[in-house]
Amino acid sequence: MDALIPRPRGALPRVCAVALAAMTAGSVVCLSPDRLFGWVAVVILILTLGPLLHGLCLAAEEVLNHSNTRYRGQRLLSRVLPACGFGGKTLLAAGLAGLLLYLAGPPLPHTEQCWKLLVLTSTLYALFKSLGVLGPSEVEVSDICEGRKMNAAHGLAWSFYLGYLRLVLPRLEDSIRAFCVTRKAFRGRGSRRLLILIPLNANISHKLEEEDDNIHFFDNLPNNEIDRAGIRGRVYKHSVYRVLDEHGKDHECVVEYATPLLTLYSMSQESSAGFGEPERRQQVLLFYRTLQEILERSLECRNRYKLILVNDEHEDDPHLLSKAILRHLQQQEREEFCITPPPQQELFNPFALMSSSPPSAPPMNGDCHLPEPMSREPTLMFSMEGPQPLKEAVEDTDHY
């Protein structure tokens, strides 16, 4: 599954840009070293004046039509202009480039040619930027949305955690314990977690037995009633299923789909949402990655869940779902229990220290009840007494 989940984008584009700029600057130094600083200043001015002119075009729209609705009448300099691209870094770069051009002089023989190049290039940049010709690529938009947590998957993952998992997972163990009092189930410790299914195609069936006939509904856990958002005693419940393996043995587990995937699937079916099938698959993977990162940092949910990413897009196996569940159950059993047998503990036999048994001693034919080995888990013991000095050796040998 690691090959399916997209990793966060790194700094390779920045490294490539720095290397390309270094090679270009080196080539310019070799060809015409006397005009290097002038050309650098002109290029920086072109690259900064263009975005500033485009920011003026954006500021005209924001100030005239959206100053009250989007910015609540806040000041022009403190809120509107920074939102339009008038950042401190851009203004500082433009100022330093202007100072460098003044000190180094224009690189072209005629000063008018240099200013014509600056004005014309900056104006055309603002024009093409407004028309979308120089707009950000899909990779840039995706990088911005992932970096600023602006994807639909991020919002759905946080909503699923804050509105559901953080409330029910701390109560899951008590619900299973109360369920086992009345019903004989959950023979393995690995099955006492909430298994959350995340299919890649986001197509969720409301009944698991309709997807796989090796999965059968068993019963519901006791309801958890929580006061939530003005609703007194809002009910949260989980369903217990029995999953059959290849030998016909059943395994009980608490399993359910991630309900936010219903939203992603419904959005992909609505043309007005602008959310196609490729975008849906990408959002499902981001949802899985984001939810996994959230739950790994949550102390309330630790060791109480298991995310199962089901790659069912190109699979025709009718038992794909049950195999995925059983594979994770077996993995949890191997993680929680020692595979090799524990070391044998020596039993204390008081009669083994005696060379011969007295007449009144119990028979040594194995019928006596020997004390059992210690089975309690080791615990830390702290002494409340202060540190004591070491005692000196005392000679107690009698000399004759």
Rank of each mutant, 00 (worst) to 15 (best):
D143C: 00
N65F: 15
N365D: 15
P373Q: 09
N151Q: 07
D398N: 08
L156V: 01
N311S: 12
A324Q: 15
F348R: 10
P170E: 12
K306L: 10
R234Y: 09
Y71P: 02
L380H: 08
D219L: 04
P358W: 05
T121A: 15
A258M: 04
Q345H: 12
H154F: 08
Y236F: 15
M150E: 06
L194T: 14
E246L: 12
G386P: 05
C57T: 09
N220H: 14
A324M: 14
L36K: 03
A324P: 00
H206I: 09
Q283P: 01
P387L: 13
L76R: 12
I46E: 09
C338P: 03
L197E: 02
R7Q: 14
Y71E: 02
I339R: 14
I144M: 00
R72N: 13
R9N: 05
G233T: 00
E225P: 00
N201S: 14
S383M: 05
E395N: 04
L165H: 13
G147N: 02
F275L: 05
V240S: 06
G248T: 10
S67E: 07
L299I: 14
S322M: 07
H216S: 13
H110A: 13
I204E: 08
I325Q: 12
S239P: 02
Q344N: 11
P362C: 11
A11P: 06
